[in-house]
Design a protein around this nucleic acid. Sequence first.
DNA 1: TTTTATTATCGTAATATTGCAATATTAAAA
DNA 2: TTTTAATATTGCAATATTACGATAATAAAA
Lengths: 107, 107
Amino acid sequence: MGITKSQIFTKNQNELAQVFKVLGHPARVAILQYISNQNACICNDLVEETGLAQATVSQHLKELKSIGLLKGEIEGKRMCYCLDVDRWDAIQNQLNHFFNTTKANCC
Amino acid sequence: MGITKSQIFTKNQNELAQVFKVLGHPARVAILQYISNQNACICNDLVEETGLAQATVSQHLKELKSIGLLKGEIEGKRMCYCLDVDRWDAIQNQLNHFFNTTKANCC
DNA sequence: TTTTATTATCGTAATATTGCAATATTAAAA
DNA sequence: TTTTAATATTGCAATATTACGATAATAAAA
């Protein structure tokens, strides 16, 4: 096979896993950290910063957008990507809820 | 290509991404939640619980072990897998540190 | 309008992941 | 010792991801 059997898991489990998955690439971690050190960012900065090709960076940005972590505004012929802070906080809360509720007494 | 260029990122970024990646599958989220509802667990329970084949479950458990989240004790001819609570807390702290430090003023 | 700069998308190659059947391993039970 | 039960490993097919060159799209600048 090779296809994740998402239909056998709950909506919550799939959503949680999707968030983790998007964050599960060092380039995307690096992109988020870089944006946090600026007040904003543009894609071409990230090409220099990450050492990845422009097409690759654009693709990673798309994935971060797909879970709502980034929002982009058009600024002339540039894109200004920045964190969606509300979504950022919501995701942090969601992950903490997972960690707090999934804590077992060990055998 | 298709290979993640981990050498161009920091050790911290790679480690963080690796943790997110392991958690980024609904079966592994479900396994952790199931273990938390028991006091322990055995692999065969998980086969029924998840609807995945025994080999598949075993593989997911191996990945969770790879980041230290689970520890397994041999109990006769069974394995007793349980959360490593110290590691669990450490990872939660690591992720919170990432979320707290990577928080930008939006543009 | 033409050029230039910036970002997105498409197509494709390389690699990774998922899932499972078959088989191996291990230890208790018979 | 042989059988049985539980888990791990191997090998493989299907699908997903990563990366990038080429190209398209868009908007400011010349």
